[in-house]
Computed example of a mutant assay.
Amino acid sequence: MNAYYYLAIAICAEVIATVSLKAVKGLSTPQPLLLVIAGYGVAFWMLTLVMRTVPVGVAYAVWSGLGIVMVSIAALVLYGQKLDIPAMLGMALIVIGVLVIQLFSKTAGH
């Protein structure tokens, strides 16, 4: 399987785990805690597979950059947490940075 499929799985698992953290409520709710543990477990497992072929810096840039944006979208949908214009602009710059790496960098391992 292509490393970028593993990376997509890692990102989605990390987003699920991170968004579930809010629902854990200081470890008082076990179901979301299971999502957190499983989500981060899958995320890091997939990330180790990605790093077999994709440089660490590139893998982490894509993973964290897209994760930030996806967590923000999920927080808006699930918790009604809205971002202001500076936050959205900052995230747009992160996405642009990830696109530059993927489209133009020879380091990206295509």
Rank of each mutant, 00 (worst) to 15 (best):
L76K: 09
I96R: 13
Y40Q: 02
L35M: 14
C12Y: 08
L21A: 01
I16T: 07
A87C: 12
P55T: 07
D84G: 15
V58N: 02
G39I: 04
W45P: 08
Q81T: 14
L83H: 10
L103C: 02
A75D: 13
K106W: 02
S20A: 10
G26K: 07
A3I: 04
G80H: 08
M46K: 05
K25W: 02
V95Y: 05
L35C: 10
A38P: 02
V95T: 11
G90S: 13
Y4T: 07
F44L: 14
Q31K: 10
T48C: 09
L47W: 03
L21D: 00
R52G: 11
W45K: 03
K25E: 12
W63T: 13
I96Q: 12
G26T: 02
Y6S: 04
A3T: 04
K22T: 00
A38L: 15
V71Y: 08
A38K: 09
P30I: 02
L49C: 01
M51Q: 14
P32Q: 02
V36F: 00
V42R: 09
A17T: 01
P30V: 01
G67I: 10
S105I: 13
M1K: 06
L27M: 07
M1Q: 02
V15E: 12
A59V: 12
A38I: 14
A59N: 09
M1R: 03
A74D: 12
I101G: 04
L89R: 12
I16C: 07
T48Y: 11
G90Q: 11
L34W: 10
S28N: 01
L7S: 01
Y6P: 00
G57H: 09
G57V: 10
V77M: 15
L93A: 15
M91P: 03
M88L: 14
V62H: 05
G80K: 14
M1A: 08
L89D: 11
L34H: 05
G57F: 13
S105A: 13
L66W: 06
V77G: 15
A75L: 10
K82C: 09
A38N: 04
I37G: 02
G67N: 15
K106C: 00
P86V: 14
Y6R: 03
G109E: 13
Q102N: 13
G97W: 08
A38M: 12
L21T: 06
K106H: 12
G67M: 13
V98D: 04
V62G: 06
T18F: 05
L27C: 00
A87S: 15
T48Q: 12
P30D: 00
I16Y: 01
V71R: 11
K22W: 01
P30G: 01
L89M: 15
T18G: 06
K106A: 04
V36I: 06
V42E: 11
G65R: 15
I73P: 12
M46F: 05
P86E: 14
A17Y: 03
K82E: 03
A92Q: 09
W63D: 14
G97P: 00
V42D: 14
A43M: 04
L34F: 08
Q102H: 05
M70G: 11
